[in-house]
């Protein structure tokens, strides 16, 4: 679950979990986060949380709400955003990072049942019942798999009080009576975060024709060479390096005097490519 860290002058005052669909911030005591300071309006701002996403909205405060130094009316909160109200700061820590490893199971596509959806931001706060807290991500191993099957024609009014967080969608609900005990999910495989591998810079240099000597840097994931309808090849930029592949035409491109096969061909520094009557040299940039 996402949380806010309230601080003033670098001093941490409090941590607040965003467990409710609406978390209000203001000077008056009925607010979820009360900040008793004259620079803060009675009802200053609200944070609407929909599953794992939180949105900050200024409620027409006198002195405004700032996020990362900029005044905002409505803002989609990102991890480490700093909300400022007067001298107070609220740092937003998103769910994925607040709860250590995010289980792989959590990312699987799930159905959000429309019957349980409530219009999120427009709904008055008073109508919001005690929220169903989303399960901590770490619980994935004991979660029932997928979505439990709710009985057809389930009590609508009950469904409507599920606060956007349909228990079904996060798997927190107990298995319904008619469904057999849910099987535990397979042990979640840790999701490796895709780290962008720095790709070396490379260039193609024309060796023949009127434009000889001209260079083309391979900045795009794909660069096509040749004449459409006659002979075309593509150079792809991948984490492993650069590859040339035949696309169309009767003849395959020639690399260092030898025609390539149908599969992608890895390019090495100073390879000479011939296609459609043009010669180009491939080389890595220092």
């Amino acid at each position: 679950m996402a949380k806010l860290i309230l601080s003033m002058d670098g001093l941490v005052l409090k941590e607040i979990l965003l467990s409710k669909e609406r978390t209000t911030i203001g000077r008056k005591p009925h607010n979820d986060i009360q900040i008793d300071n004259l620079a803060v309006s009675g009802e200053h701002a609200v944070i609407v949380t929909i599953l794992a996403d939180s949105f900050l909205e200024d409620l027409g405060s006198t002195n405004g709400t700032f996020v990362n130094g900029k005044t905002v009316k409505k803002h989609f909160l990102q991890n480490n955003d700093v909300i400022e109200l007067g001298k107070y700061k609220l740092k937003y820590i998103s769910e994925a990072l607040a709860g250590a490893a995010k289980a792989a199971d959590f990312e699987k596509t799930m159905v959000l049942r429309p019957g349980a959806m409530r219009k999120p931001p427009e709904a008055p706060a008073a109508a919001a019942p005690a929220p169903t807290p989303a399960p901590a991500p770490g619980h994935a191993a004991t979660m029932p798999t997928g979505m439990p099957v709710t009985a057809a024609g389930a009590d609508k009014s009950h469904a409507a009080t599920q606060v956007g967080v349909t228990a079904a969608s996060v798997g927190a609900a107990p298995a319904p009576a008619h469904a057999p005990a849910a099987t535990p999910a397979p042990a979640p495989t840790p999701t490796p975060t895709p780290t962008p591998i720095p790709v070396r810079r490379a260039t193609l240099k024309l060796m023949s024709g009127g434009n000889a000597g001209k260079e083309l840097e391979l900045t795009k994931p794909l660069t096509t060479l040749g004449k459409p309808g006659v002979q075309v090849a593509v150079v792809t930029r991948r984490p492993q390096g650069f590859f040339i592949t035949h696309v169309e035409g009767a003849n395959k491109p020639i690399v260092n005097g030898k025609a390539i096969e149908l599969q992608a061909h890895a390019l090495n520094d100073h390879d000479v490519i011939e296609l459609a009557g043009v010669k180009v040299e491939f080389f890595f940039k220092p």
Partner: peptide
């Protein structure tokens, strides 16, 4: 609903929730 732009949607954590599926109802 105007809550998110397409650009912001790329950063959302709620990417995996569909509102309709075959075989659920």
């Amino acid at each position: 609903a105007g809550m998110l732009t397409k650009e912001q949607a790329k950063h959302s954590s709620n990417k995996n929730l569909v509102t309709k599926a075959l075989g659920i109802d």
